[in-house]
Design a binder for these strands. Structure first.
Length: 688
DNA sequence: GCAAGGTC
């Protein structure tokens, strides 16, 4: 029997379908589907893994953070452990029957390692040389058949490069995570994490926030006028635009402030062509969907759901060029219904459909595009928003350019020049379907050289320069991509991790006190881990391992020595690092004043992970409050008027946030004057 | 209870 191993179930099914010409049988082994068919007269079974089935970790004896000096971890050899037990046991039972094994995981570094792990686990490392490897760049019949008729061998050097990354990430991540957590006394549920990708990402947010708070606004002036002609008003601005010299601004303004009339100097018209947008890769998709006010992680989980249900293509891709074998016409044709009818028909009416191309072309997956038509009723509101975005973007990439007429007018007012512009869409082209991108039209009255216009209003505006903006989640993902941090599959998860560690809050994300304190400490004592260079350097080394110019051992050894130096210097500063972080954390955890002794009340976690509030003077003062264990809570600093306890804001899905007293025994609640009981009553009434 | 990377 032949065994084909794929990276995921979806690919396994597709490959079985292609190699068997549709004559395959699906069987479930427990909860794991496998696909059986006859290929070249031999019984064949295909299994889809779920990515990595092996994870690297330290031996159990190093599990106790308090008993192991983090510096010891540097020289511990990580172990491989099965992380997907169900799949692994199906794999080994299939391996008993198989006499030949074919690796058909994704054709990239991680795919090579995923395949190697599976073969090694099921057949032993002796079989690695014998395994056949299919190299394909898309799951299309031609490509799959080609790859299975020209099989190669596994590239163990490529797999070794991926393994090197695993080791380096684990050793640095675990050692620094433990060191920082121990130094600041944060153990158990509230540990502080450090990593090659998460820490530079957090540093981006923290440093942007520093720029914002250090920003000194600079005053400037603008002179703007409202002009009129034939009963139609239009705006004009002084040609100098932003004027930073107050004397100059006042001088110009005094010349024009009493003007009643202006004269048109000239009118210029030109046509602008806005090219359609390029196909969606993951980053641009998240950026666009981020405007629908969803978190990056939520967007990706909806996309995953749409993908597994067959509505859109694979959502994790860097590619921005449709592959040649994607049948654009057929895809458009399948969408020519409902709200997409008009755009789709227009595209189909073209003799040749041409698509825009982005600057990144890869061969692993196509850009994100719709694979089936669906309605809002089928998908529900939220899923439809994402699906609709993908469909409209896809159609836009095949549509016509948008043509815009831009009119520039110069007007003389008492010897000063003012400019105005008119914007009119001649033909909307792709914008008729990609309604997320809007050009604001501006109307001008009919004007020509020498025409007199009325000055309706003229003003000197006081302005201030603005600080740089915070990163949106989408903007952050784009910046991470630019810096080479993380991958298409992990960037959104990294951001989510920063939220769950309470390093950042709100959206757009802002650093918390602990997030800032952590970055301050790391930048001071372990700068390397906060910079994207660590990733680019690792990338270079991995490339050289794959090319046989370097060995895994050499890279890992050098990395270990570097970490040893870092930890040794940090060890000397341990007390100071701990103090800095701990004091920020303490400040962050203060939720109000104790009504009994007026010391700080702290948000804390018990040994078992339960959150509650207690007095900072504990055990001297025993005041404490239980908290709801689920859902997000924030503390505004407000105090309950009835019992003087702090108020908290509860956020639950699908409901409006509500502010209630944290004291479950608050007399205000029983009386129904704004406590949670009263609120509950309202909600029940509202929903029935 | 540590990372980051696949995948669900």
């Amino acid at each position: 029997m032949r065994l084909i191993i794929c990276e995921k179930d979806n690919a396994a099914k597709r490959i079985s379908d292609i190699l068997s010409n549709g004559h395959f049988k699906t069987e479930k082994r427990g909860r794991v589907p496998v696909y059986l068919f006859v290929w070249e007269n031999e019984r064949t079974v295909t299994l889809g893994l779920r990515g990595h089935i092996i994870n690297m970790d330290f031996p159990k004896s190093y599990n106790n953070w308090s008993a192991v000096d983090p510096i010891e971890l540097i020289d511990v050899k990580p172990e491989r452990m099965v992380s997907a037990k169900g799949i692994a046991s199906v794999l080994s039972s299939l391996a008993k029957e198989a006499d030949r094994v074919y690796v058909a995981t994704d054709y990239d570094r991680e795919g090579e390692l995923i395949g190697k792990e599976a073969v090694e686990y099921a057949f032993g490392s002796g079989q690695l040389e014998k395994a056949m490897r299919a190299h394909f760049s898309s799951l299309t019949p031609d490509e799959i058949r080609r790859s299975f008729s020209s099989l190669g061998r596994m590239d163990l050097h490529l797999a070794s490069a991926a393994e090197t990354r695993q080791i380096v990430d684990l050793v640095w991540g675990a050692a620094l995570t433990r060191f920082i957590s121990l130094a600041s006394g944060r153990l158990g549920h509230d540990f502080l994490s450090v990593g090659r990708v998460q820490s530079p990402t957090l540093a981006l947010i923290v440093n942007r926030e520093k720029e914002i708070s250090a920003f000194v606004p600079e005053p400037y002036f603008r002179i703007e006028a409202l002009l009129g002609r034939d009963g139609l008003d239009f705006e004009a601005a002084h040609v100098e635009g932003d004027i930073f010299d107050q004397g100059k601004a006042k001088e110009i303004f005094s010349k024009v402030k009493d003007a009643k009339e202006g004269v048109i100097i000239d009118v210029k018209e030109r046509e602008r062509t806005d090219r359609p947008p390029v196909p969606f890769n993951t980053t641009q998709f998240i950026r666009a969907a981020n405007n629908l006010s969803l978190s990056a992680a939520r967007i990706m989980s909806i996309a995953e759901d749409l993908y597994t249900n067959g509505y859109i293509s694979y959502p994790r891709t860097d590619n921005t060029v449709y592959p040649r074998d994607l049948d654009l016409r057929k895809t458009v044709d399948s969408l020519a219904k409902g709200p997409y009818m008009e755009a789709a028909s227009h595209i189909l009416s073209k003799e040749k459909i041409t698509a825009t191309r982005g600057s990144k072309q890869t061969t692993d997956h196509p850009p994100i595009y719709p694979t089936a038509f669906a309605t809002k009723a089928e998908l529900g509101r939220e899923r439809f928003k994402i699906y609709d975005l993908v469909v409209r973007r896809f159609l836009a990439t095949l549509h016509d350019p948008c043509r815009v007429k831009v009119t520039s007018v110069r007007t003389d007012i008492n010897g000063e020049t003012f400019t105005s512009s008119g914007i009119r869409i001649i033909s909307p082209g792709w914008r008729s379907v990609y309604t997320m991108s809007v050009v604001k039209e501006k109307e001008l009255p009919p004007l020509e050289k020498g025409v007199r216009v009325k000055v309706e209003e003229i003003s000197l505006l006081d302005k201030e320069t603005k600080p740089p903006r915070r990163f949106s989640q989408g903007g952050l993902i784009q910046e991470m991509e630019r810096l080479g941090l993380g991958t298409k599959s992990t960037r959104h998860e990294i951001i989510q991790k920063l939220y769950s560690r309470r390093y950042i809050e709100e959206s757009p994300p802002r650093p918390t006190l602990s997030g800032s304190a952590l970055i301050d400490a790391l930048e001071k004592h372990a700068r390397m881990i906060t910079e994207p260079d660590m990733t680019s350097r690792l990338e270079r080394d991995m490339e050289r391992i794959a090319n046989r110019e370097l060995t895994q051992d050499a890279v890992v050894m050098e990395s270990r020595e570097m970490l040893r130096k870092v930890l040794r210097t940090m060890e000397k500063e341990k007390a100071a690092i701990g103090r800095d972080i701990a004091s920020a954390l303490k400040e962050q955890d203060v939720v109000g004043k104790c009504p009994r002794c007026s010391n700080d009340l702290l948000l804390v976690r018990s040994k078992w992970g339960k959150r509650y509030v207690r007095c900072s003077r504990f055990p001297g003062c025993s005041k404490s409050y239980p908290l709801p264990q689920k859902g997000k809570i924030t503390f505004s600093g407000n105090i309950c008027e009835v019992c003087r306890s702090p108020m908290m804001t509860l956020y639950s899905r699908g409901k409006r946030p509500r502010e209630v007293c944290i004291n479950p025994a608050c007399p205000g609640k029983r009386a129904g004057t704004g406590g949670s009981e009263g609120e509950k009553g309202k909600n029940i009434k509202g929903s029935s």
